[in-house]
């Protein structure tokens, strides 16, 4: 498969803004056109080839080499194609994304998949805060699609998310599923505090015990069948889950009663009898 390869020449001091680097923009352009697209650093405007060595063109398959941890907005609002990072990716990766695939070999920063509505983001390292979240003031976060994180994730994971799936293998910080309105969050190593705070609807599944908010009501223990469907779809993306998790029983909590909301938190409480 042909690729357009962007190799970062040097890590920028001041963050770069690169909202043009998406398959939607790049795919139809010649090599020269891609190289001359505008990038912004502070209040100065640069060209793509000021910071990246560009190889190839005419594809919707973009590959980034080098530490792009300070390059923001790559994959913004992309609707198709593929972006692969061999190392780190910067803030707002795949924000407003509608379709396609983003894979990150290293870490990603804050606001991964902010307000995304479709597509897949798979981070092999850690993710920052506000993954799949709503931008400040906005009523809806992630509206669809899938975010998979092999490492840890920061605060406000899936804040105000409406639909879609976020799965995190590593530990997650405070306020996971804050003001959640729908969709599913899978926490494989649990989360710190205030999980599901102010949630209205949606499902948070934790394979580790959680520090619950006092505004959730404990309910029955049961084995939710739908979890097996998730196993299958996650496995298709190469995101493995322990077999026990899907055959186990879960304690169901509902809340947040302060809203009052009808969200559910399912906490794994042991293998099925």
């Amino acid at each position: 498969m042909s690729q357009t390869i962007f190799t970062l020449k040097q890590r920028p001091d001041v963050p770069l803004e690169a909202e043009v680097l998406t398959p939607d923009v790049v795919a139809s352009l010649s090599h020269g056109e891609v190289a001359s697209l505008p990038l912004f650093m502070g209040k100065r405007q640069f060209r793509v080839d000021d910071f990246f060595e560009v190889n190839g063109s005419g594809t919707d398959n973009l590959v980034f080499h080098g530490d792009c941890g300070r390059v923001k907005w790559i994959g913004r609002a992309m609707s198709h194609g593929r972006i692969t990072f061999s190392s780190h990716a910067g803030m707002h990766l795949g924000a407003y994304m509608k379709g396609g695939i983003i894979k990150v070999g290293g870490d990603a920063s804050d606001w991964v998949g902010g307000e995304m509505s479709g597509g897949l983001i798979h981070i092999h390292g850690h993710a920052g805060g506000q993954t799949g979240a709503a931008y400040r003031g906005s009523m809806k976060g992630m509206k669809g699609g899938t975010i998979l994180i092999e490492g840890s994730a920061g605060i406000e994971l899936g804040m105000r998310m409406r639909r879609g799936l976020i799965a995190v293998r590593g530990p997650v910080r405070d306020f996971a599923g804050l003001q959640m309105k729908g969709g599913t969050i899978l926490l494989m190593s649990g989360a710190e505090i205030r999980t599901g705070a102010w949630m209205v609807r949606g499902t948070i599944i934790s394979l580790k015990p959680l520090k619950m908010m006092p505004t959730f009501s404990a309910g029955c223990v049961y084995n939710p069948n739908f979890l097996r469907l998730y196993t299958k779809s996650l496995a298709e993306h190469g995101f493995t889950t322990p077999v026990d998790a899907w055959h186990g029983v879960y304690r169901r909590y509902t809340g947040d009663t302060s809203v009052p909301g009808k969200g559910e938190i399912l906490v794994w409480s042991g293998p099925a009898h």
């Binding site: 205030r194 102010w198 908010m213 006092p214 505004t215 404990a218 947040d256 009663t257 302060s258 009052p260």
Partner: peptide, 18 residues
């Protein structure tokens, strides 16, 4: 504080808390 305020939000609406 956050937990305490959230509990108060539930209590003023006569909602259950743990």
């Amino acid at each position: 504080d956050f937990e305490m305020i959230t509990v108060l939000r539930a209590l003023i609406k006569e909602q259950p808390v743990d």
